[in-house]
Design a protein around this nucleic acid. Structure first.
Length: 429
RNA sequence: GGGGAGAUACUCAAGCGGCCAACGAGGACAGACUGUAAAUCUGUUGGUGUACACCUUCACAGGUUCGAAUCCUGUUCUCCCCA
């Protein structure tokens, strides 16, 4: 069943702005649109997920989505929203990053059928594009005045911190603009989408298309996701939340969504869930009844984790969460066999200790440090003073000793600092 | 090339010879309250030791001094203005 793309985005709160005529163009039949991804890391993060979802909806509406991997643009660095000049990456790293991102995108988009998704890399058409050719054929079409009027440029030149901006970054919008032109010309793409911070870059593209060929192209942007506390979405203390399980374990990924604030969760569900409007509204209503149960967060976490990491990983994440946070006491964990424990705690912090050392008993502070859970004795002492340390879910004092008898399955030790920080110590190796 | 300003802990930002492991703010972590939420209140936020203590830190390398983040010299880097 095909959906109406723009309508779909609207009710989901995913539409920030669109050029006049965009909706009409889409209603005429199958269209092609692209979104660019920056290969600055070897994994996409949840920050990129909004764009991925946009492409999914686009495909679901019967259109053909393109994902552009910015092999060339990644070498330059987008100045939008950045107050500082970016570090440039080498070609090798970029290549590697592109490959990884490509594999991740394949989880979301269908590469079958008449509107199958396509992945392109702008490095392919830039690598042989000489500088002189570029400034003649492209640079000539756009005035510096026009480029200077973009917010991304203005902020850098006259912004409060006077950071300044290199010519390289100044050129960025032209490069991205040319991408659009190229895809318009050679692939028949009429629409570029992106975060609202990309508006300036996208319109440079439509402008180029108009000036070079008198052609028409469109722009559509999604709002930047805000968190209710004003911090950046997709980042936690531990850094970015990535889609790659090697960087962010499925457990942490699941926890990230589960921990969404009430104020944010409904918005997230609308954006990151493929559920229908009715389903989402009923979940939201249920959540209203009893926010403490957090049905909203659970639905969100389950759907997103399953899509990204698969059913099995999701089940393990839920399992681990229940043991760690659920009411079930430590007995539940004793009942598990070693393999299950290892699987469940995959992604929770882990360390090692020699079981020999515990036969005589070891002071808790020492256990914390030796196992690698806490970095220094001072910190361990502080944590103990704060009464924040638990062993096997049991609060312990500074003078307590850990002995062989405390081991679960005669092997594991579950350390905990505060409510959310867990650490599994394995005494065999 | 000429002139000016600056570099302090995760970030911003005081300090300008001893009272400085370094004010303050944000962040982070923890405790209480809760729902693994938000808000609020409280505590912690270089290392070693139970503690009065000691050790290593204020871009880098030297120097002056009983004593330096603070003064001097050199080096590196950043920003601004003029050419």
């Amino acid at each position: 069943m095909k959906t109406n793309f723009v309508e779909e985005l609207k009710w989901r709160g995913m539409l920030h702005d669109a050029m006049p005529g965009t909706e009409e163009q889409l209603n005429q039949g199958m269209c092609k649109a692209y979104i660019g991804f920056d290969p600055t890391a070897d994994s996409l993060g949840v920050g990129n997920l909004v764009q991925i979802m946009t492409l999914m909806h686009f495909q679901k509406a019967g259109h053909q989505p393109y994902a552009l991997i910015g092999g060339a643009t990644g070498m330059i660095g987008d100045p939008s929203g950045k107050s500082q000049e970016r570090n440039l990456l080498s070609e090798d790293i970029l290549r590697h990053n592109q490959d990884c991102q490509k594999r991740q995108l394949e989880k979301f988009l269908s590469f079958e059928g008449e509107n199958k998704a396509v992945i392109v890399n702008n490095y392919d058409w830039f690598k042989d594009f000489g500088f002189l050719d570029f400034i003649r054929d492209v640079g000539k079409r756009i005035t510096v005045n026009y480029m200077m009027s973009k917010d991304s440029v203005k902020n850098r030149i006259s912004g409060g911190n006077h950071e300044g901006m290199s010519f390289t970054e100044f050129t960025y919008q032209l490069i991205q603009g040319y991408d659009f032109y190229y895809l318009w010309k050679h692939h028949g793409i009429q629409l570029q989408m992106g975060g609202s911070d990309q508006w300036g870059n996208i319109t440079t593209g439509t402008e180029l298309i108009r000036r070079i060929e008198g052609g028409e192209a469109f722009a559509l942007t999604t709002p930047l996701i805000k968190k209710s506390d004003g911090t950046k979405f997709g980042k936690t203390e531990g850094g970015n939340i990535w889609l790659d399980p090697k960087r962010t374990s499925p457990y942490k990924f699941y926890q990230f969504w589960l921990n969404a604030a009430d104020a944010d969760a409904p918005g997230y569900l609308k954006i990151f869930s493929m559920k229908t409007r009715e389903e989402i509204e009923s979940i939201m209503a249920e959540h209203e009844q009893d926010p403490g149960r957090r049905v909203l967060q659970k639905a969100l976490a389950e759907e997103v984790t399953e899509r990204v990491h698969g059913k099995e990983a999701l089940e393990q994440a839920i399992n681990a969460s229940q043991i760690l946070f659920g009411n079930a006491d430590i007995q539940a964990m004793r009942a598990l066999d070693n393999l299950t424990i290892q699987e469940i705690f995959e992604g929770v912090g882990q360390g090692k200790l020699d079981s020999q050392e515990l036969t005589e008993g070891m002071p808790i502070a020492q256990v914390l440090v030796k196992s690698g859970f806490i970095a220094s004795n001072n910190e361990a002492r502080r944590a103990l003073q704060e009464n924040s340390i638990s062993v096997n879910k049991q609060k312990v004092g500074a003078e307590s000793m850990v002995q062989t008898a405390d081991l679960l399955n005669e092997r594991y030790l579950l350390l905990q600092r505060g409510k959310k920080n867990y650490y599994l110590v394995d005494t065999q190796s």
